[in-house]
Design a protein around this nucleic acid. Structure first.
Lengths: 244, 244
DNA sequence: CGAGCAGTTGATTTTTATCAAGTAGCGTGG
DNA sequence: CCACGCTACTTGATAAAAATCAACTGCTCG
């Protein structure tokens, strides 16, 4: 579609059907009329691993609802140092709590499908449906809280505490999505985890080994990781226990 | 006033006159009628150094506009480790982008005056004046961006880079408030700076000494600090220069 | 089959934290 | 007014944590 002409990533958008239904579940409490109007302007975008959905500095024209796959949000320093500020998974929204320009790079960790619609359409809908604006603010506050949690992690936690917290966050997400929270699939590499936790890949790898040796976790194929002792992980994450 | 009965910090609120005018300047673009209504329910609170304005876990009933002084927002880990997630100064707002409960401790760095009003009143006003809700969201997005900047700092920057960025942020604020951006007053201690930058007081002190030796800054009385070479500080902060 | 990447592990270095000691400034009370 | 004690800050010596450098394994995908 021509709406896509401005983007250089070559993402081919098409009108999105099933994603409208998914978004309904995200904003279930909102007025149907508003959603129907939103669905009318929604398109599907698909990305393969490593492709960029939005770039730092791009005008923030679109919002995205991740319908399949996962992606990382990161910022870069001039010399290449990277800090991942978040991971997004199925059901998450991107571009809601943003100003006129995106401030992050968003890259697919695996083949990705997202539902895209214009922020201007959303903004207009907020005028008519105040509840939509409230939901938006609520989400921004949630993100802000998560960011502050991450500040505590990056500023004051040891490598073991950071990784334990990371695993428990993934578990919480899995439980929220109806999973068992026991065996998780890591769609990101060690380097991604390191850049999220403010560590190096080697340090992450060593913590993995330590946790495995202690019987806290077990690794499977394709990034599968099993939490054998979630309560012990919670002890690590809260810093209540010495991290030997 | 009886509205204050629920708080245990013993802050004596009184009806606020001059703060209504100050808030007008904060939200100058908004409908006068809404502001007038808001001013009608505003109260002034005063705190002395070290006193707590809001506590982690308190129900977020109030919003505050800082009319004089400064405060720190921090979180604590179980064993006493502390991460300051932000400093607030004259003109800043507290409690806007928050959910049902405060997630931080807010403590005065110096004698503080703030204008307080109920969030419920603000929420109601947002219904009538959509522009107010938009300003609120805009601010939340701004805070989120600042939080992501801080994540990069905490996760990937050296002590010198962190302190340089800290100084430049203070300078930017001073410039925004009409100052010259040359000589700043630090209302926080080295320990506060350390807990904000994810360092220790000793490390902060060493960086200060290093910057002083290099002729980048000069210290005066009462926490005065002069930026002698802002451009060199900018080099440090961006990580473009080796931080020897 | 081979190149390349993700991951692990080891040796060493660097950075920052920790421990320790001392100085300077400030407010309080004699 | 000065002595005292407290706190903020600085500086030095040492330790610990994580980064860096390096080598190797195993896998995946051309």
């Amino acid at each position: 579609m021509s709406a896509c002409a401005g983007r250089q990533t070559g993402v081919p958008p098409t009108v999105c059907d099933q994603c409208a239904a998914r978004r309904l579940s995200v904003c279930a409490s909102l007025a149907d009329e508003g959603l129907a109007r939103l669905a009318a302007v929604a398109e599907t975008v698909t990305l393969s691993t490593g492709q960029t959905l939005v770039s730092d500095g791009d005008p923030a024209r679109y919002m995205f609802n991740i319908t399949r796959g996962s992606l990382r949000l990161h910022r870069l320093l001039g010399d290449g140092r990277r800090q991942i500020v978040g991971f997004l998974f199925q059901g998450d929204l991107l571009g809601l709590a943003t100003r006129a320009f995106y401030q992050v790079e968003a890259e697919a960790l695996e083949p990705l499908t997202a539902c895209r619609f214009r922020r201007s359409a959303y903004d207009q809908l907020c005028e008519s449906f105040p509840a939509l604006g409230k939901a938006l603010l609520e989400r921004a506050c949630h993100d802000l809280q998560a960011a502050q949690d991450q500040m505590v992690l990056l500023g004051r936690m040891t490598s073991g505490e950071r990784f334990a917290r990371f695993l428990l966050d993934l578990q919480a997400r899995d439980l929220r999505n109806g999973g068992t929270g026991v065996t998780l699939r890591l769609s990101m590499t060690r380097a991604d985890i390191a850049d999220f936790l403010g560590l190096t890949t080697e340090t992450v790898s060593r913590v993995v080994t330590r946790f495995r040796t202690l019987g806290l976790i077990a690794l499977g194929a394709k990034g599968q990781i099993t939490l054998l002792q979630p309560s012990a992980l919670a002890d690590y994450a809260s810093g209540d226990r010495a991290c030997s």
